[in-house]
């Protein structure tokens, strides 16, 4: 607006409107939720150090951190590999590859995570083991494969412990979500990039590896970070397999001591300290990617 002159200028200056008490506007802007959270955290640490029931609960539950982190990190790593492969399958021009990938993504995303974990642990893994088992028995009849056959036939369902099945279940479930993240990230890159790379004689996979994925990763990284935090939380579901993670140790501590408050306050505190740190990390990453280009 080309309007100028003293009047127009005067209007731009924000009017200072004092509240009932002069400093209230400043106070309203403070991140109170964070301060309260911090205070609660400090109070809980204080309780863990000084109150015997909390100290006891903490020392019983804390080892579950290791299992929760181990499961989350390894399951997420596998889910990333699955996600990349399936995500590429979802944009494949090969109808067989496309349909298998889409079938997996649509089916898995339609099932609650806890059901997936139970299904993988008690249905898919046993099926896989018995397939390996009978394959091994068949191979024993072939002279030069007899040793491999015997080793495969010796595999028993009890050899696959619940920790491994829990990791497999979470990875299987999250692979479908990561596949969609990868697919969307790859498709967000202009078509001309692939055309330019292919015009130079690069193969499809070379173009993916050197041109498309390095660009897509900037788009993908923040959602992947969020999904990792989501998995950290969903890893509590593996307590249905009696894997001794944070949640399972919480359940055990409660039935051992009947101290419900102390137990679940401690469990909640431990999860929150991980997830809040994690989401701060993702926000930092987002800012860095936006400004760094």
């Amino acid at each position: 607006m080309p309007e100028s002159g003293p009047q127009a200028v005067a209007e731009v200056i924000p009017r200072k409107e004092p509240g009932l008490i002069p400093w209230t506007t400043q106070l309203a802007r403070l991140p109170w939720w964070g301060l309260i959270l911090l205070l609660l955290g400090v109070a809980l640490v204080y309780a863990i150090v000084t109150v015997p029931n909390y100290t006891d609960a903490f020392y019983f539950i804390a080892p579950g951190l290791k299992i929760t982190l181990l499961v989350s990190v390894s399951a997420f790593t596998i889910a990333l590999v699955v996600g990349l492969v399936v995500g590429l399958g979802r944009i494949s021009s090969n109808p067989i590859v496309y349909n298998i990938s889409t079938f997996y993504v649509e089916v898995v995303r339609g099932i609650p995570m806890i059901v997936i974990i139970i299904y993988v642990a008690y249905v898919l893994v046993p099926i896989l083991v018995s397939v390996v088992h009978s394959l091994g028995e068949a191979l024993q009849t072939v002279p030069w494969l007899a040793n491999t056959g015997r080793a495969m036939a010796a595999l028993h369902i009890t050899d696959i412990n619940m920790l491994a099945r829990a990791i497999a279940g979470l990875a299987f479930g999250y692979g479908a979500y990561e596949a969609e993240v990868f697919r969307a990230g790859i498709q967000s890159i202009e078509k001309g990039q692939m055309e330019a790379a292919r015009s130079l004689g690069m193969s499809y996979f070379q173009a993916m590896r050197y041109v498309i994925l390095p660009q897509a990763i900037r788009v993908i990284l923040p959602p992947l970070g969020n999904d990792f935090i989501a998995m950290l939380k969903d890893s509590s579901l593996i307590s249905v397999l009696a894997v001794r993670d944070l949640t399972q140790l919480g359940k055990l501590n409660r039935s051992r001591t009947f101290r419900t408050f102390e137990t679940w306050n401690t469990v909640t505190y431990l999860y929150l300290s991980m997830t809040i740190l994690g989401s701060m990390g993702v926000k930092w990453l987002e800012r860095k990617l936006k400004t760094g280009v």
């Binding site: 001309g192 055309e195 330019a196 292919r198 015009s199 130079l200 004689g201 193969s203 041109v211 660009q215």
Partner: peptide, 20 residues
């Protein structure tokens, strides 16, 4: 086709340089 494309240079309207 990859071998053939290496022998045929292409220049696009929107350049399509690799931004990274």
């Amino acid at each position: 086709i990859d071998a053939l494309r290496a022998e045929v240079g292409m220049v696009f309207q929107l350049f399509n340089l690799f931004p990274h």
